Simulated scan of single mutants.
Amino acid sequence: MSTRAWTWVHKWSSLVCTAFMLLLCLTGLPLIFHEEIEHLPGAVEAAPMPEGTPEASMDRIAQAARERRPDDVIRYMFWDPEEHPNLTYVSMASRVDAPPDENNAVVVDSRTAQVLDEPRTNEGFMYVMLKLHVDMFAGLPGMLFLGFMGLLMVVAIVSGVVLYYPFMRRLRFGALRTRRSARIRWLDWHNLLGIVTVVWLTVVGITGSINTLDRIILAIWQQDQMAEMTAPYKGLPPVTRPAHLQKSIEAARAAAPDMAVRLVAFPGTAFSSPHHYTFFLKGGTPVTSRLLKPALVDAQTGVLTASRDMPWYVKTLFLSQPLHFGDYGGLPLKILWTLLDLAAIVVLGSGLYLWLRKPRAAPVPGAEAEPDAEPDAELAPVAAVEAKT
């Protein structure tokens, strides 16, 4: 491709997605620190108790949640011992097949089976930031749209890198022409920050696009492996008197003693079947702690019926999620992610500024721009070379 063709690709891929990438950068900043924000004063935590205090039966915990919300049914229970030790989160709704957004949460102390809180999960600052970042309050269409914007960002990055060398070949790397016009100064900062963060921007853009496919990927898993594991129960009536939850969770733990249960989907929910509890387990290594392994337990007998590793496409999704938000390396990596995100915001904003302030006069055909001269209007929006996140 010619330089002019690459310029056209870069310009339009950048301009189309810049506003949406700015939205994702801005909303992504607080989401990087969502765990720390959840621990701010006022957040519910389990009361201190002697180390080794045994956990209550899962049946007692489930019963406590049902007593608090007698008109609802339990759909999911999950645990996060690293961030919220000794707490069981119970997700309830008016019926087992209610829409995914219907979530009445109950927080229970895992040792005493005492209800501690009923947090509202569909309101507040972090909820708004998450919804804007994930789907702009537009559901699956919004997610897929943002995924497409992420792919356009990757196109802008690649085309911007192609244009970077011919544009900067007569300038020192990182040169900032501080005595030139404001537009030239912003162009230099745009190019410098863009090329320095190009790898990070590419990784975040690709993983973000993968994350927007999570509903589709999980639906494929349900139609594939989940359907295979539950095939023997096809056509049987749903379970009306489920087995004890504690007995079922012990059967799941016995199948993978080196893993820990992190979530259980109750019979009839999207991630189970009308005949099973589905327990999702995590390992203890840096990699396996990011993956989930399902274990299906017959909801009537409490006997394990199937368990297998997730397919490669689901593992890819699980591994891309922590990489996107930088939450696999503790606070230092989150700070680095924040600095890179701020740099991306500058690249995006400067790219938009350069486009709005592009020179009116057209360059002489075939003329080569001097390194200290006003850049060609088509090359100036080296706009978003890497301007997206």
Rank of each mutant, 00 (worst) to 15 (best):
H10D: 14
S13R: 09
L15A: 08
L31K: 05
L31Q: 03
P48M: 03
D59S: 00
A65S: 01
P70G: 00
P70Q: 00
Y76R: 01
L87W: 00
V90M: 05
M92Q: 06
A93N: 03
S94R: 10
S94W: 03
V96K: 12
N103I: 10
N104V: 13
S110R: 07
S110F: 01
D117V: 08
E118Q: 08
P119T: 04
M126I: 07
L144M: 00
F145Y: 12
F167N: 06
G174R: 05
T178I: 15
R179Y: 00
R180V: 10
A182T: 15
L187V: 07
D188A: 11
L193V: 12
V196D: 04
I210K: 04
N211H: 13
D214W: 08
I216W: 13
I217V: 15
W221D: 03
L236F: 14
E250I: 10
A254N: 08
A265S: 06
A270K: 15
T278C: 02
S289G: 12
L296C: 09
G302Q: 10
V303A: 15
P311C: 14
W312G: 15
V314G: 00
V314C: 00
K315S: 05
L319H: 07
L342D: 03
S350Q: 05
P359N: 14
A362Y: 05
E370P: 06
